[in-house]
Design a protein around this nucleic acid. Structure first.
Length: 392
DNA sequence: GTTTTCGTTCGGACCACAAGTAGGG
DNA sequence: ACCCCTACTTGTGGTCCGAACGAAA
């Protein structure tokens, strides 16, 4: 099962290889947790090794492979922590989360340019980037944002995008988590998000735009798409919709909550309650999730299954105090993050920047300014024959 | 050691208006 | 089901101001 070893005062899982440093990635091919050093050493050894799919370790528990990226929290979370944090209240459940994509080949070392690796917007980079990579991120900000929105499939026809979508085997594995995250009523089930009928390449490309771009509030000028809890993503494995065999349902959790007299929902078996960091706004119900009881075992080292489709492992049988400590640690970690303000409507930003101000406050436009604007727009209409559609 | 003063930092409020949303006819 | 209209809500940035804090007297 899971090792309870700790490094110093940390709770992080230690590297399976050197056993001296906290692991940072999980190699799915080797079924091994590796620190950044060992990861680089092992997977840079030869071409075959460099092809191993790896995922980051959950930022909350630091013990299980990350399965989802929460854009709101700018955090990679394992299935357990994801459900724990995002099932606490409706606000948290609406956080925009996307499955973690495997770390691309040739990327070694600490979480350099993690957001880029994961194919997410640069708003996720803030926490993970080193100063050096931060510079690069700034330079590539626009192109990265663009690629996040429009990222045509390349090699694998089963792969919608390189970043958020994942090809072949990865899809299957992540989809195993689907039911697990769909525990809230107002939360769009991840399974729905990734269900898509098989289509031709062209249709897939169109669908990428169709499903990938949030439909509501997206006016075409948004830098960051508005989620609204309705982001539609789809997978290319309709057969996955069929009921999973029992052995594959290990990640389905019983999310029956008890409603306390305070009106909050508590998991039935936990008396410890933790305010989870995802609920920054509004009332924060104290909630944790049932300890995940996943009867998976970890093969001994050396038992390498290169094509294993086993579900990603998650922490099991954690005590309530362990869980509370980890969530608190995650909370502290998140607290220290530096968030970059997200601009959802670039057009509004542009308007705000050009708007007249008095001591910083927006001021009413003078009649002269309004006239100038009208003249400008009418002149342009006369010249081009088209009206001005504000788009930035 | 305690109190007062000064400087710095931080977060929230404020403003107008285009764009988005909801509901009714 | 669709369109149109109206009313309401949301989001945007620069500046101000008060609270909080630390250092010096």
């Amino acid at each position: 099962m899971f090792k309870e070893e700790q490094i110093g005062s940390t709770w992080a899982r230690i590297c399976d290889t050197c056993r001296s440093a906290p692991c940072t990635v999980y190699c799915r091919a080797d079924l091994a947790y590796l620190c950044s050093g060992c990861d680089a050493r092992i997977h840079a050894a030869n071409e075959l090794a460099s092809q191993h799919e790896r995922v980051w370790i959950c930022e909350a528990c630091e013990r299980a492979p990350a399965a989802f990226i929460c854009k709101a929290d700018a955090a990679s979370l394992c299935t357990s922590c994801d459900a724990d944090i995002h099932s606490a209240n409706p606000l948290a459940s609406r956080h925009h989360r996307v499955p973690v994509a495997p770390i691309s080949c040739g990327v070694y070392g600490p979480r350099a340019a993690k957001g880029s690796i994961l194919g997410l917007g640069d708003d996720l980079n803030v926490d993970f980037l080193t100063p050096e990579t931060d510079e690069v991120a700034d330079e590539d900000e626009e192109s990265e944002a663009a690629s996040w929105l429009i990222n045509p499939p390349k090699n694998n026809s089963n792969q919608l995008t390189n970043g958020l979508f994942f090809g072949g085997e990865a899809v299957d594995e992540y989809l195993d988590f689907v039911d697990f995250t769909s525990c809230q009523d107002n939360q769009v089930t991840t399974k729905q998000q990734y269900d898509v009928p098989q289509k031709s390449f062209g249709d897939q490309y169109n669908d990428q735009h169709k499903y990938y771009v949030p439909q509501k509030s997206y006016t075409g000028d948004s830098i960051v798409p508005v989620q609204n809890g309705q982001m539609k993503l789809h997978q290319f494995h309709p057969q996955q919709e069929q009921p999973l065999p029992k052995q594959n349902q290990t990640f389905q959790l019983d999310m029956e909550y008890e409603t306390s007299n305070t009106g909050y929902c508590y998991p039935p078996s936990l008396s410890h309650s933790v305010s989870v960091s995802s609920m920054d706004v509004g009332v924060v119900p104290e909630s944790t999730m049932i300890d995940v009881s996943i009867p998976h075992s970890r093969p001994c080292k050396g038992t390498i299954d290169m094509f294993s489709t086993r579900p990603i492992q998650t922490p099991t049988q954690l005590s309530a105090m362990d869980r509370e400590a980890r969530v608190l640690r995650y909370k502290e970690k998140k607290k220290n993050r530096k968030f970059v303000k997200t601009i959802r409507y670039a057009s509004r930003k542009a308007y705000a920047e050009t708007r007249p101000r008095i001591k910083g406050r927006f001021a009413k436009r003078t009649d002269a300014e309004v006239e100038v604007d009208q003249m400008f727009s009418s002149t342009l209409m006369a010249e081009t024959g088209y009206g001005i559609v504000p788009s930035f």
